[in-house]
Every structure is written in structure tokens, then in C-alpha cells.
Design a binder for these strands. Structure first.
Lengths: 130, 130
DNA sequence: ATGCCACTTCAAGTCAACTTGAAGTCAAGA
DNA sequence: TCTTGACTTCAAGTTGACTTGAAGTGGCAT
């Protein structure tokens, strides 16, 4: 596959793919002339990268997750990250409910309609700074 | 409350609070000398901002959600955002399962252990570019 | 074989969201 | 009163993740 094919399938611009390659996140399997050639498996890689980005990993961290074979040192780290994702998921769920409530609410200020405030108060007292 | 008190309670540095005020996201209720004085309600505001950021809103968008009283034009937008959050939540859930799987997996490459790949394949075929 | 145009490299630019630094102010405790 | 140090402003710097532009190359359809 050439770069624009991958770009199209993955939904990212070619410039991003070149950038990712430069960073070592993906590899091109060769060249046809100057043109990069990618294996289809790069699409799975890209999906994984997208997943990681959504989960809040930096590109450098993702690169490390791909290459690093450290045995179990970061099992704790992974578990911690999973915890963190749980917290984020809870936040997003709150936000989602809040938005749907706000959409059905005639309060002038979108983010401060009573429904939202109630949700917020319910989720606040768990005293985790940040 | 003075700025450092708010900062401490909200878990953000004072510089951020000044920045948010400049952007119109929060207001100080007055000054004692030069020093800003905040109402305790600013904490709720900050929690809301944090929630919005987590949900992927930009600071400008959040500011708009606070001030804008446009009647129903953006109900659709809010609903769309809720959908989007749903998708993100699904992604995070996949990632969370994947991380936990990877943590319990002896595969060398963390992000490409078989469990992860299976999860990925399960979530991929839903052909939504990006 | 020729011309087009998608590809290439590399340096520099952009953007959001803050942070940092310098220089100054002032509330409050000793 | 005097000092201390937490506050203030404002401009400039930082970071991550890309994007853009200029200048060049070469695969492929005609």
C-alpha cells in the first residue's frame, strides 16, 4: 500500500504517517523509488496508536509500549493506568449524562443547568485533587 | 478565598487560575489590595471545567458553554457530543481491558499481546475513519 | 519519451494550554 | 516600622503533535 492508501483507510493525513514513521511508531516495509510502501498490518498499528492517544498516552509512551520488553516492572504501571482510565470513564459518563440533561433543559447557561449541577455534586465529594 | 487556597483545593497551580480568569472561564469576586479574592463557588466552576476538558472541549468551547444562552441551536451539537463521548468511552473501555490483559500477559511487546489484538479486532471492523 | 502529479525531504511554522521570569506591590506578623 | 514573601502584571518561553512550504524526484499513463 502506498502512503495515500494508508492515509485514506486510517483516516489520517500522509503528513501524520511520515511523522509517525520518523518517531518510530510505524515502519514502511520498503520503497518503490522514493515512495514508501506499507504493509496492511500498519493499519492495526495505527488503530492501536489511536486507541493509545485516546487513552491519554503520549506518542513517546506508545512507542515505548511497542518496543519495550521489560518483563514485569511496569505491570503496576499498566494497572495504574487502567485505574486512571476507569476514573476518566466515570468522568466522561458524568459529562455525557450532563450534556443530555442540558440538551433537554431550558436553563440559560448550558453547563450550569440544575441537572448538571446535581451530577457534579454527586461526583465531586470523592476528594481526588485534579 | 485567596488564589493559593483555591489552587490547593482545586489541585491546579495559581498560574492556571490567572490564565482561566484572563480567558473569562472564572471570575474573582474582588480584590484585597492587589490580591484576587474568589468565592467558594469557583471550585464548582473549576470542577466543571475539568470535566469539560476531560470530555475534549477546548477552553474556548467551555467558555462559550458558560456564557452562551443560544436557545436550542446547539441541542443537536450537545447530542452529537454525547454520541462522541460514547465512542470515546467504548475506546477507553477497550484500552482498559487491553491493559489489564497485557499486564497479565507475558508477550514481549506490551501493546501487541494476543489479548490486545483480539480486543482490537473486535472493535475495529466498525468502519468509522478516525 | 515525456509530462504530470503524487510522492519525497527538511526546516520552519502553528496551536492550545499553560509556565516561567523579571520586576514590582502590598498585607501582615515580629 | 520593617521585612518577608505571597501576591501582582506582562511578555516571552515551552511542549506535544502535527502541518505547511519550498524545492526536488520519479512512477506511470499517454
Amino acid at each position: 500500500m502506498d502512503i495515500s492508501e494508508v492515509a485514506k483507510q486510517a483516516g489520517v493525513p500522509p503528513s501524520t504517517l511520515r511523522y509517525y514513521e520518523e518517531k518510530g511508531l510505524i515502519v514502511s516495509i520498503g520503497r518503490r523509488g522514493l515512495h514508501r510502501v506499507f504493509a496492511p498490518s500498519v493499519l492495526e498499528r495505527l488503530a492501536l496508536i489511536s486507541l493509545g492517544r485516546t487513552a491519554g498516552f503520549s506518542l513517546d509512551e506508545i512507542a515505548r509500549l511497542f518496543t519495550e520488553s521489560k518483563p514485569r516492572i511496569d505491570r503496576k504501571m499498566l494497572a495504574a493506568k487502567a485505574e486512571e482510565l476507569d476514573a476518566t470513564i466515570r468522568k466522561l459518563t458524568t459529562m455525557r449524562k450532563g450534556l443530555l440533561g442540558a440538551a433537554a433543559c431550558s436553563f440559560p447557561n448550558q453547563l450550569e443547568c440544575p441537572k448538571f449541577r446535581r451530577l457534579l455534586r454527586a461526583s465531586l465529594p470523592s476528594r481526588k485533587p485534579l
